[in-house]
Nucleic acid binder design. Sequence first.
DNA 1: ACATGTATGTTGTAGTTACAACAAAGGATG
DNA 2: CATCCTTTGTTGTAACTACAACATACATGT
Lengths: 217, 217
Amino acid sequence: MEKIFNIVKNNDLFEGVIFKDFEKLYPCLSPIRKKFKKSEIILNAGDKANYVYIILSGSVKIVKSDIDGKDNVLTELSVSDIFGEVFACANILHSHVTVVSLQESEVLFLNYKKIITSCQSACSYHSKLISNMLKLVAKKNIMLHQKIELISKRTTRERLLLYFDIHRRNQKKFTIPHSRENLAAYLCVDRSAMSNEFSKMQKEGIIKYDKNQFEIL
Amino acid sequence: MEKIFNIVKNNDLFEGVIFKDFEKLYPCLSPIRKKFKKSEIILNAGDKANYVYIILSGSVKIVKSDIDGKDNVLTELSVSDIFGEVFACANILHSHVTVVSLQESEVLFLNYKKIITSCQSACSYHSKLISNMLKLVAKKNIMLHQKIELISKRTTRERLLLYFDIHRRNQKKFTIPHSRENLAAYLCVDRSAMSNEFSKMQKEGIIKYDKNQFEIL
DNA sequence: ACATGTATGTTGTAGTTACAACAAAGGATG
DNA sequence: CATCCTTTGTTGTAACTACAACATACATGT
C-alpha cells in the first residue's frame, strides 16, 4: 500500500492527499492491479471506459488509428502518469484510443464512479480527489489549447518561433527536452524540413543552437 | 430568478438541476449580473480568473492575441454558453484570453470557488454541479483533441475528408453548419484554397455539393 | 576496431498552400 | 431598381512543405 502511495502521490490526482488519508481512501476506489507484457494491449479502442488508469511501473503509448487504419502515437506515458480519465469524466461510453504497453508494466485500475461519487462517509479527502480531477482535466485542456495555437500556424518557422516563445520562459538560452523527431511530431511537421528550418534560422542569425541547447539572438 | 433558470438550464453545468433546487443553489454561487455594450470588454487577458461566466443575452467573442499582437478569434458564444471555466478549474490565476461583447449583452458571473466547494449544507445539487463541471471540461477536452486530430493533417484535402467523416455521421448527405470562412478558420487553412479544393474534389467525383449541402460519392 | 543502429543535417523535386486580386452571386437597404 | 455589402468561387504566382535519398555523427555492443 505504501509502495503504491509513493508512486501515485506524484500524480496530480492525489495532490495534497497524505498517506493516512490514502489508506482509508484507496479501498473505496475498487483498485485492481494488472501486469502487462511488452506490446500487450491495456485498453482497446471501443472498450468500455469505466476506469482511470495509473501506471505503477513501465511505460505505455497511447495510439489512435486513422480513418485509413494508419496508427498514430499521441503520447507516451510512464510511471505515475494517468490515462483514461477524460473518457471517464466525459461519460463517453467507449474509448477512442488504444493503449499499448511499451515494456513489462504494471497498471492500477481505479473505478471512475467511485472517484467522483462522494462515499457515504463523505470523507473530505474524497472531495479533494474530485477537485484534483477537475484541475487535472482543466490543465490538460489548457495544454491542448496551447498545442492548437501552435499548429494553427501555417509555416514551420512560425510554429518554431511560437514554441520557443512558450518554452524559453523569458530566457535567451534554453534547452529543448525533445528529440528532433518528437518535436517535429508535436509540431506536426516533417522532421527533415524542421531540421532544415533550424539551419536557415541559424544562417539568418535569428537563433544559435548546439544539440538541444538553443539561444535566441 | 425563473428567467435566469430558463436560460442557464440549457448549459451543461446545470444539467439535471430542477428549478426547486436551483432556487436554493443560486444564492450560494454569489451571482452577479452585468450588462455590456457592443465592443465592451468583459474579461481582459491578465485579469484574475475567479469567475465562471454564463451569457444571459447577446453574444461575445473570445480573442487571443498573438506574440506579434495580432488578434485571433477563438470562438463566438451566445445565450446560455459558458466561458472562463477552464482557467478557474485549472487554478490559473490570470486569464490568457480576452472576451469582448459583440452586441448589447448580459452576463452572469458565478464565483468559481463556491461552485466547486460543497457548501455546509452539503446539498446534493451542489455535488451535481461539480460533476457536471467535470463532465463539461472533459467534453471540451475531447473536442479539442478532435480539432488537433484534424489540423494535424498536412493537406487541406485530408483535413476536409476527416472533417466530413466526423460530421456526416454515416450519412452520405449532410449539411455543414458553418460558412466557408468559419470552416476554413476552424481547419486552419486559407478560405480560397479551401474553396478551390472543394471544386477539385467535385471535379474528381469524390463529392458533390450545393451551398452547405454535401454528398459523399 | 568493427559493425550496427539511431539521431540529425542536407539537398533536390514534385506537390501543396497562402496570398492577392478579381469575378460572380445573392441579400439587404434605401 | 440601383447601390452597397457579404459570401463564395476562380486563377496565377511565389513561397513553403513533404518526401525520398543520402551524408554525417555518435553511441552501443561484440
